[in-house]
Design a protein around this nucleic acid. Structure first.
Lengths: 215, 215, 215, 215
DNA sequence: GATGAATGAGTGTTCATTCAT
DNA sequence: AATGAATGAACACTCATTCAT
């Protein structure tokens, strides 16, 4: 049991390395095992196969991220229900962003794998799934919001893009800025930019289409 | 000669299909050839190998796009040099955006391949290269701009991100909106959003760092 | 017709080059044709295939050599029949050796091909065939010789080896001394060495076996 | 482990057969594996590839031969240093020759492969390398010899050829006489011939050139 | 809890050769 | 007299996976 854990860890470490270097499809299990100083049989004892090894590397950080997102939105929803008026203060989301950044950079390799090397895997659509999750929760909140500020409709397509853009901002940082501190710094500016644009858009929306969300 | 063209076209067609389905790495030349009703030998008579077939599919549209970008920036630069004052009018870039959208959707499969299925290819960094090209030209223009509106410094990192974000907006559309008309419509809103944010940022910039661009 | 000859020559030239570089088996007809600026079809119009091209390069010089050898032995035989006593004079065979060297070096590439790059070809045993030819003629002469100098038996195996050694001396030069003049010079010494050894062996032969040739 | 050894042996056996029949370049790994009753994958588990299989067949006997040569020369050198006068006795090298013959015929197939079927392999120059090794050691001994018998110069080119001729005598036997006993018998005569010629040449050398070795 | 030998289908690629034009 | 498009079989090699031990 003790030993299994050790082998498992070694395999995960060298798997991470190989997947990063070659991408999922071109990575070689043989090389991963050799690098871990373990036989292929051992890998198949511990994991179900190639994809399972990949999952073992990327899934835990991904699931943790999703939990964080859910928790954040739950809190936001709670606040929204209690307050009667939504007031936007600068830096509102900064704390959350920093939390996310910390998690992303704390599992840097796993997220790089997830976002740029997972082609051919069940995880290749992870970014999309995260965006959808956020959009879903966001739309829900907007629904609550709309009960108080009537008449306004927002373009659902634009909203979807903005969510995607926000999520992609994290990806951009992850792939262009290796230092966590610098990334956190930058993210504040980026969030600010997006929020401002968002508020602006609500105040003077483009021509609404039928697909709009009442706001 | 006549015949070669036909075979070539058939191979490109079935190659496009297979690459789209499986991604570059997992695509099988044998399947491509069988699907085209041709032997592997024929493929190797016409193309140099797997990557060359891929290139034959994606390179022409990519090169055309790059030319369009260059031409657009050349025109912009020319205008900038003639006028004494830069005045932003809404919809300024709309025409260009529409042109790009037309090209992107006119070669839909090729760009999907390029942007989402080119891992393991010389083209896997194409998006980045396009972003760099645009950034380069953009920075150049900002330099010209700076000769007239002095003192202003803009955060180079933010500028880079905005360029990336703009480019990524096209990718977002390509991967989320199959209809060209709808995409063109949307792109106008998106461009508007970005430009507004950009102007806003110039007027009240975040704290500039040393790497800033004089504006 | 004129044209055919030209194409033929170009193919032979580039074939010689490719065969020398890669050896017969690994040489590529495609490369030969490309190098000659000719299509594969043309090659098959003029030659019957890969081996036929090889033959066209090496056969003429080989046949010429064989003729020279035959002529030389015919002359020797003639002299032997006329004279009553065989008298060995130093430098006897020198003239012949020089002739052979001239021919060998005049067709240097062809003989290198023949001797070191013909594996997989009908010509891969050429050296052996030449040795056998010489041995045959040599034995015949020894038979004539034996009619006059009775009693002596020579070890047939040793004789065979000496013939082989002689032939191989030419190969040795061809593969170790690129300059014809130097090779000719050296060959005189080598011939001398062999002849001396031969005479010596006749005068005090090893124990004869049943396979001996009466001398 | 037990099993691997068996598979290894089977592969070596059928590899030896196929290489002998077709030569290295034209030999087919597929056929070798089929003949051994094993899949290609098995071959690649045990060997690194085609050339590695070839190496596994020919390298051990070759290395053993080289060691034997080195040992023989070391002993000779030792004797030479102790005795004040070099006295040639007939049959001097006979024992060594017999040892070599025994080794050569004890690994008959391997040496045939090495000497006549290794084109396209790292081993294609083995004969030359052996000749160089012997020449090197031989020249060294001649140097020692020269300290006592002064004034004599020997043509280095002739010496080189004689070494080559000696080595080639073994090749000649290997390729022309399948029976070890007969070969050993013959080799004695051949060695005798060469040594006699050598001594003769020293006593009445051809005109020495500048490249001569003082003797 | 693992080993390591082996599978078998698959890969991209190269080849000498053919033949309608 | 020659083209050039195409064939089809073969190539060495790699892969994720299995299973007796």
């Amino acid at each position: 049991m003790r030993q299994e854990r050790e082998t498992r860890e070694k395999l995960i470490a060298s798997g991470r390395k190989e997947f990063l270097e070659k991408g999922y499809a071109k990575a070689s299990l043989r090389k991963i095992c050799a690098d871990a100083g373990v036989t292929t049989g051992a890998l198949y004892f511990i994991f179900e196969g190639k994809e399972d090894l990949f999952r073992a590397i990327v899934e835990p950080p991904l699931e943790a991220l999703i939990s964080m997102i859910r928790a954040y939105f739950a809190k936001e929803k709670h606040l929204l229900l209690r307050s009667e008026l939504y007031v936007h203060r600068e830096g509102d989301h900064a704390a959350a962003a920093e939390l996310f950044i910390r998690h992303l950079y704390g599992n840097y390799d796993a997220f790089i794998l997830l976002l740029t090397k997972s082609q051919g895997t069940a995880f290749e659509g992870s970014l999309e799934r995260i965006a959808e999750l956020i959009e879903e929760q966001f739309v829900m909140q907007c629904g609550l919001f709309a009960e108080r500020m009537s008449g306004r409709q927002m373009d659902a397509g634009m909203l979807r893009w903005m969510v995607y853009m926000t999520v992609d901002a994290f990806v951009y940082l992850l792939t262009h800025e290796r230092e966590e501190q610098a990334a956190a710094e930058r993210m504040k500016l980026m969030i600010n930019f997006i929020v401002k644009g968002f508020v602006e858009m609500i105040l003077s929306p483009g021509k609404a289409d039928g697909d709009g969300i009442s706001l």
